[in-house]
């Protein structure tokens, strides 16, 4: 564990609390893509199967994994049941098969070992890299977002961005250790946030509303 990763994980935690806060206080999931949230459930469930196989890393690691699985399911409950009327599927139109198909194929080809757990692990890494796409697509379509929603996305983006210095740090402190699947997917994932951060810095942090140029 290093500081980059710790802050990254805390930022990931923060993003979830920001999202929960947004939904609970506005009593609405308007502006949130349920497709992206469903993909996160799939990401966590497929990646954290090692909770049940005895490959224990640390209490911190296990608690975080359980939290991510539990909170992502809870968010789906809020969106699908509790605040269902505020969920507008007509603007959440990204086709999930464009994501699920290619990531499944990639996982079957590029994995560390052709076993059930390893293929699912690789799948979850590829899936996480692009899971934000329905959300970004929705943002692009509506051209605007509530400020709290942009804070949620910023926290997620910071989480992903900080994993990169974490890998560089680990490379030098762990004798050239590198996890190519996580690194390549992680760089792709971080790159997807670049456009968003441009608008976030130039508008939201200057006190303006998040609005995309027409």
């Amino acid at each position: 564990m290093n500081l980059f990763r710790l802050v990254a994980d805390l930022s990931h935690l923060a993003s979830i609390f920001i999202l929960l806060h947004k939904i609970q206080t506005t009593r609405s999931c308007r502006g949130i893509s349920i497709k992206t949230q469903l993909l996160y459930v799939l990401v966590f469930v497929t990646r954290y199967l090692d909770l049940f196989t005895g490959d224990f890393v640390s209490i911190y690691n296990s608690v975080m994994k359980l939290f991510f699985i539990g909170s992502s399911c809870y968010i789906i409950y809020l969106m699908r049941i509790k605040y269902k009327p505020t969920n507008d599927p007509s603007i959440d139109t990204f086709r999930l098969e464009y994501i699920l198909g290619p990531t499944a194929v990639l996982a079957l080809i590029f994995n560390y070992k052709f076993t059930f757990l390893e293929v699912l692990w690789a799948f979850s890494i590829y899936l996480e890299a692009v899971a934000i796409l329905p959300q970004l697509f929705m943002l692009q379509r509506t051209g605007e977002a509530e400020t709290i929603t942009t804070h949620y996305l910023a926290a997620l983006g910071i989480y992903r961005g900080l994993y990169i210095p974490n890998w560089i740090y680990r490379y030098f402190t762990e004798g050239g250790a590198i996890d190519p699947i996580a690194v390549v997917a992680g760089i792709v994932q971080t790159a997807l946030y670049v456009d968003f951060f441009y608008v976030y810095f130039t508008k939201v942090l200057q006190g303006q509303k998040f609005e995309l140029p027409a």
């Binding site: 890393v57 560390y112 692990w121 680990r170 590198i178 996890d179 996580a182």
Partner: peptide, 10 residues
Amino acid sequence: VPAAEKHDEL
């Protein structure tokens, strides 16, 4: 085992 296969990150 290379670090990559430990999967010790979240």
